[in-house]
Deep mutational scan, measured.
Amino acid sequence: HNLTITQGKLFFHYNPKLCLSEIHKMEEVSGTKGRQERNDIALKTNGDQASCENELLKFSYIRTSFDKILLRWEPYWPPDFRDLLGFMLFYKEAPYQNVTEFDGQDACGSNSWTVVDIDPPLRSNDPKSQNHPGWLMRGLKPWTQYAIFVKTLVTFSDERRTYGAKSDIIYVQTDATNPSVPLDPISVSNSSSQIILKWKPPSDPNGNITHYLVFWERQAEDSELFELDYCLKGLKLPSRTWSPPFESEDSQKHNQSEYEDSAGECCSCPKTDSQILKELEESSFRKTFEDYLHNVVFVPRKTSSGTGAEDPRPSRKRRSLGDVGNVTVAVPTVAAFPNTSSTSVPTSPEEHRPFEKVVNKESLVISGLRHFTGYRIELQACNQDTPEERCSVAAYVSARTMPEAKADDIVGPVTHEIFENNVVHLMWQEPKEPNGLIVLYEVSYRRYGDEELHLCVSRKHFALERGCRLRGLSPGNYSVRIRATSLAGNGSWTEPTYFYVTDYLDVPSNIA
């Protein structure tokens, strides 16, 4: 807008934040220059609390790290170098490059900038070799853009010569660093050979998330399962459950009422301010606690030095998902009996873990797994792929695949051998790939016309006998059925096997 004052003059007093240069501009645009008398524009009460600059400061050096910015700028000295009290560095987070010096300023003089007072450097006698002032900004957020400017702080001049310097606002972004852990990993099994893994992005990506790394490792069953005799009275049979499938998407929606109208769909109840505040506090606490764990609990591995020492970490090797089922080394339970199943799973520490690289999504279907087997899954978020990966501390989750139908069934015939004193040795093959492992066998036998009897055969007993022995049988026709019990439950009964026990007292003698 054009402003013209045809008559009258300007009068400025007691404006401590208004620089004289701005008042002189007002004289020019209003056409009143030359009308004012000496005392109409006070030299001592206008701009006496402001830094009124008329020179431009330029930054000469900028260096960044993930949490620091090192700045240096060209030296500046007023005509009387004693008038320079120091520099004021202003900075704040700036997602967009549209910041002005006066953003967030209120009537009390406060604003949204963080201000650092910096002492002037030592003055050199040689004007050509003056030290460049600077400042190291610490405690910054990774991968965050900051708006920065600097200006001088000078003393009051009796001659009211307006001098000083100020830089333009520059924008500097800190470097990326390792992201925080992925949030809320959930693993479920939808079949006997697959596990579905879902997660949420890290709360602090500290860069642009480029991919996720998912490692999985087959877990050995508890050692007590191999040692305890679950045929003993009072000892509860062990059981394991597989990871249940995901709930429906509708039930997972946030901010939804727990109660549904019987007449149909209901609208979600909005969260109160107290609920939102509580969630923010919980989120802040979780982030602080995660940072504490990362800094205190997890110790970084030592990389190899120039002395030739090897990095103890196993090298990563990509495998196809079809090879995942046989990740671990199978060892027989008892070496003397080769027909026992290889369900003991000690994992070799030198073995390469299978892994998958996930790009542009937060889910993965891990296939080719062994049925009813526990897996430990390790999830890392990465925001750099080359020249070397920059990934987060791992988040861990466990899951067990679903049982395989008929995996616990005894394959092959049940054979028998009759000894003296009416002892019958029953023999059968253990299931080759049971659900988890076989903890015991149930032997059901009966003599024709009598009630059915049951015998429990422990895992250890089966390994020693290759089956079991029935003792003290009365003469007669017998039928026997056997079924295995694994961590997933009972298998199917075998087809009945028949044998006849004679009275050993009636056996004919070869003595003449």
Rank of each mutant, 00 (worst) to 15 (best):
P205H: 03
N206W: 15
G207K: 02
I209E: 06
I209A: 15
Y212R: 00
Y212S: 06
L213V: 13
F215K: 15
W216N: 03
R218D: 05
R218L: 14
Q219N: 11
Q219K: 05
Q219V: 14
A220N: 08
D222Y: 12
S223L: 06
F226H: 05
F226D: 07
E227M: 07
E227N: 11
C231L: 01
L232Q: 13
K233V: 13
L235E: 08
K236I: 04
K236P: 10
L237A: 12
L237I: 14
L237H: 02
L237R: 07
L237M: 09
P238L: 08
P238Q: 09
P238E: 07
S239Y: 13
R240S: 08
T241L: 06
T241S: 05
W242I: 04
W242P: 13
W242C: 01
W242L: 14
S243M: 12
P244D: 14
P244Q: 10
P245M: 07
E247I: 02
E247H: 07
S248E: 02
S248C: 05
E249I: 11
S251E: 14
S251V: 12
Q252T: 15
Q252F: 06
K253P: 15
H254I: 07
H254S: 15
Q256V: 13
Q256I: 09
S257W: 04
S257T: 08
S257F: 11
Y259V: 13
E260M: 06
E260L: 11
S262F: 14
S262E: 02
S262L: 11
A263H: 04
A263R: 12
G264M: 13
G264N: 11
G264H: 09
E265S: 09
C266L: 12
C267L: 09
C267G: 07
S268E: 10
S268G: 01
S268L: 12
S268Y: 03
P270R: 03
D273Y: 13
Q275V: 10
I276C: 02
L277D: 09
L277T: 03
E279K: 02
E282D: 01
S283L: 14
S284E: 08
S284N: 07
F285K: 14
R286H: 05
R286Q: 09
R286G: 04
K287C: 06
T288W: 15
F289P: 04
F289S: 07
E290H: 15
E290N: 11
E290F: 04
E290Y: 05
D291Y: 13
Y292N: 07
H294L: 15
V296M: 11
V297H: 13
F298R: 08
V299L: 08
R301P: 01
K302F: 14
T303Y: 08
S305T: 15
S305Q: 12
G306L: 06
G306Y: 05
G306F: 09
T307E: 15
T307D: 13
G308F: 05
G308W: 10
R313D: 03
R313K: 13
P314V: 09
P314E: 14
S315M: 10
S315V: 11
R316W: 12
R316V: 04
K317N: 05
R318C: 13
R318V: 14
R319Q: 02
R319E: 05
R319M: 05
S320W: 06
L321N: 11
G322L: 11
D323F: 15
V324R: 15
V324L: 06
G325N: 10
N326L: 10
V327P: 10
V329Y: 15
V329G: 10
V329Q: 03
T333M: 13
T333Q: 06
V334H: 15
V334G: 12
A335L: 10
A335T: 11
A336T: 04
A336M: 05
A336R: 13
A336P: 11
F337W: 08
F337N: 15
F337C: 11
N339W: 11
N339P: 13
T340V: 06
S341V: 14
S342L: 09
S344Y: 10
S344L: 07
V345L: 10
T347H: 07
T347L: 14
T347Y: 09
P349Y: 10
P349L: 09
R353I: 13
P354N: 11
F355I: 11
F355M: 11
F355A: 11
E356H: 11
K357M: 10
K357T: 12
V359F: 04
V359S: 06
V359N: 12
N360F: 05
K361L: 11
E362P: 11
E362L: 07
E362G: 03
S363L: 09
S363C: 14
S363D: 13
I366G: 00
I366S: 01
I366H: 01
G368L: 08
L369S: 01
R370E: 09
H371W: 08
F372V: 01
T373M: 08
T373A: 04
G374F: 08
Y375L: 07
R376E: 02
I377Y: 10
I377H: 06
E378H: 09
L379I: 12
L379H: 01
Q380E: 05
Q380T: 14
Q380V: 04
A381P: 01
N383Y: 02
N383C: 04
Q384L: 05
Q384M: 04
T386Y: 03
E389M: 13
R390E: 02
C391A: 00
C391P: 01
V393E: 10
A394F: 06
A394D: 01
A394Y: 12
A395Y: 09
Y396L: 10
V397D: 13
V397M: 15
S398W: 12
S398L: 07
A399E: 05
A399V: 09
T401M: 02
M402A: 11
M402R: 09
M402T: 05
E404D: 11
E404N: 11
E404P: 03
A405P: 02
K406I: 11
D408L: 04
G412N: 15
P413K: 12
V414I: 12
V414E: 01
F419M: 07
F419S: 09
E420F: 14
N421D: 15
N422C: 04
N422G: 08
V423K: 07
V423R: 15
V424T: 08
H425A: 12
L426F: 04
M427R: 09
M427K: 13
W428V: 01
Q429S: 12
P431Y: 01
K432Y: 11
E433S: 14
P434K: 03
N435M: 00
N435G: 01
N435H: 03
N435Y: 00
N435S: 03
G436W: 05
L437S: 01
L437M: 04
L437H: 03
I438R: 00
L440A: 10
E442T: 04
E442S: 07
V443R: 00
S444R: 07
S444Q: 10
Y445Q: 02
Y445L: 08
R447N: 04
R447I: 11
G449W: 07
G449E: 14
G449L: 15
G449I: 11
E452A: 12
L453G: 04
H454F: 01
L455Y: 06
L455H: 04
C456M: 02
S458R: 10
R459G: 05
K460E: 07
K460P: 11
K460Q: 09
H461G: 09
F462N: 09
F462L: 05
A463C: 06
E465S: 13
R466Q: 02
G467S: 03
C468F: 04
R469P: 03
L470Y: 01
L470G: 00
R471T: 08
R471Y: 12
S474D: 08
S474M: 06
S474C: 14
S474G: 05
P475E: 06
N477T: 04
N477Q: 08
N477E: 07
N477L: 12
Y478E: 00
Y478G: 00
V480T: 12
R481W: 06
I482F: 03
I482M: 03
R483W: 00
A484H: 02
A484I: 14
L487F: 14
L487M: 11
L487V: 05
A488M: 06
A488P: 02
N490L: 15
N490M: 07
T494P: 01
T494L: 02
T494I: 07
E495P: 05
P496Y: 13
P496F: 10
Y498T: 02
Y498Q: 05
Y500A: 10
V501Y: 11
T502Q: 07
T502V: 10
T502A: 14
T502R: 12
D503P: 15
D503F: 07
Y504C: 14
Y504S: 05
L505T: 15
L505C: 06
L505V: 10
D506F: 15
D506T: 13
V507Q: 13
S509A: 06
S509M: 10
N510A: 14
